[in-house]
Structure formats: structure tokens, C-alpha cells
Computed example of a mutant assay.
Amino acid sequence: KTANSLILVIFILGLFVLGIASILYYYFSMEAASLSLSNLWFGFLLGLLCFLDNSSFKNDVKEESTKYLLLTSIVLRILCALVERISGYVRHRPTLLTTVEFLELVGFAIASTTMLVEKSLSVILLVVALAMLIIDLRMKSFLAIPNLVIFAVLLFFSSLETPKNPVAFACFFICLITDPFLDIYFSGLSVTERWKPFLYRGRICRRLSVVFTGMIELTFFILSAFKLRDTHLWYFVIPGFSIFGIFWMICHIIFLLTLWGFHTKL
């Protein structure tokens, strides 16, 4: 009964969003707002499919049909992006995240609020990491492909808690990754052109980004140190962590100082 009520609520919300998007598009000529609302709803809907417990529908024909439709959408998304780039219909512009990617990520993060607070925060951090990965691929950094492989392995093949519907999660992940991944080969933008959205921002904004990066790295180091309490081989782990931790801190401090000096002279 609860599952049927939830499906009914989602169906009504879908009709409501579709109605608003149609009104904005056809009656007010607000195409951007209509498409943005649709993308936000698409990310939210995929998030619900990922995190809601569908064990009661495991052997249902509709559930199997949904999985096949999601797999079909993955294939069509990849083929469409590939054909567009081979045919030369894509005009590459310097950007970090497109509006479609940002809204779908936001919708997915909003859908995670249906879970417990701790799990919801984990999903939100995962969404942020996925956004950083998309930016990394679009900037064609040296470790972009290894980062993508490690990220995918940690998501689908590690001991991390997997979503209730891995097919929906794979659909969300692949649909977002396809464009920046293909642009590694097809995009002809130079390094300076790719970094324009960041380099053309104000000096204060760039410096704040360096400070924010330093705070994230410091938080990571502190949390890693606290994690050592759970180990039994402390006489091996703590000396090793101390030695390599000092080396890690020196390298990252040099990196942050260099980055700060670069933004100061820019």
C-alpha cells in the first residue's frame, strides 16, 4: 500500500512538473526555464529510482521493463553523442559544468534526502565528487582517465554501499560522463581556452578557491588520521602515516603556494 501510494505521488509530481514545463515553453516562450525544470526533474527521478527500496517489485514485469529502458537510454545516449561529434554538429565551448549537468546533479542530490541524514550527506559528497570528475575530464588533465577508472571501480565494484537500483545509477553516471569523456578526443580547445571560465573570474574568487582547496585537503588529512584509531597494527601504520603524511603535506603546501602565487600574478 505504501509503495503504491509513493508511485502515485511520484506520478502526480511528474505530471505537475511536465505541465509547468509545457506552460513555460509554449505560452511564455521560456525555453531555458522549461528545459532546466525538466533536467532537474530527470535527475531527481533517477535519484529516486536509485535509492528507493524496490525489493517488492523485484520480479515485476514493469521493473524489468524499466531496467531495459534505462539500458536502452544509455546506449542511445552514447550513440547520439558519438554521432554528433563525428558529424561535427557539436560546437565546443569553454565551460566547467553545463547547465544540464549541474541541474541533474542537483536533482540527484535532492532525491538523496529521502534517506537518512548520514547517507544523504554521503550521496551529496558523491555528487560533488562526480562534478569534480566531470570538470577534470573536460579540462583534459593528466590523471583524468585514471581518476575516472578509480571512481567507477569504487562506485560499482568496491565494498561501498551500492544503490538499490544499480542500473538507474549507471544510467545517471554514464549519461553525465559521456560528453566530457568523448570530448577528450573530439574537443579541439587549447589549454587556455578550456580554463577560461576559471581564469576570467575575479582575483578574489580565484584566491578563495585556493583557500577552499587547502581546507578540503586539511580536512582529508585530519579525517585520515582519525581513521587510524580503527587499526590493530598501529605500530606499523602510525610511523608510516607520519612519514608519508609529512611528505604529503610538504608537497601540497608547495602546490598551494605555487597556485596562490600564480593567481596573484594573473
Score class of each variant (00 low, 15 high):
L208Y: 14
S38G: 05
A168T: 07
D53M: 03
R229V: 08
V210H: 08
K196V: 01
P146Y: 03
R77C: 11
L125G: 05
A170T: 08
T264G: 02
I250H: 03
A109V: 02
R207G: 05
E217C: 04
F57T: 05
T72P: 03
S141Y: 11
E31A: 14
L208F: 13
S224W: 04
F11M: 08
Y25H: 12
L48D: 05
Y25L: 11
L82W: 15
L233H: 09
M215Q: 14
P166H: 05
I177Q: 04
R203S: 10
G245F: 06
A33R: 05
T264R: 11
S159G: 10
I216S: 03
C50Y: 03
T219L: 10
L266E: 15
V191P: 00
A168P: 05
F108T: 01
S120K: 07
L121Y: 14
R138S: 07
V17S: 10
I250C: 01
F186W: 12
G88T: 04
W260E: 07
V149Y: 06
N4I: 02
K164D: 12
I110W: 04
T178E: 04
E193G: 04
L266K: 13
F102Q: 08
G47D: 09
N147P: 03
T258Q: 08
R91P: 00
V153G: 09
Y89H: 05
I243F: 15
P197L: 00
F172C: 02
P166E: 02
L48A: 04
I110Q: 07
L8R: 09
N4R: 08
L46K: 12
E31L: 13
W248L: 08
L15P: 02
F156Y: 14
F236V: 10
D60I: 00
D60V: 01
L160I: 12
L105C: 15
L208I: 14
H263N: 08
E161T: 13
T213G: 11
F169D: 02
I135M: 14
F262K: 11
S209I: 01
L208C: 11
L76V: 12
Y235C: 00
S55D: 12
I134D: 04
L96R: 03
L82P: 09
L46Q: 06
K196A: 11
C171E: 00
Y185D: 00
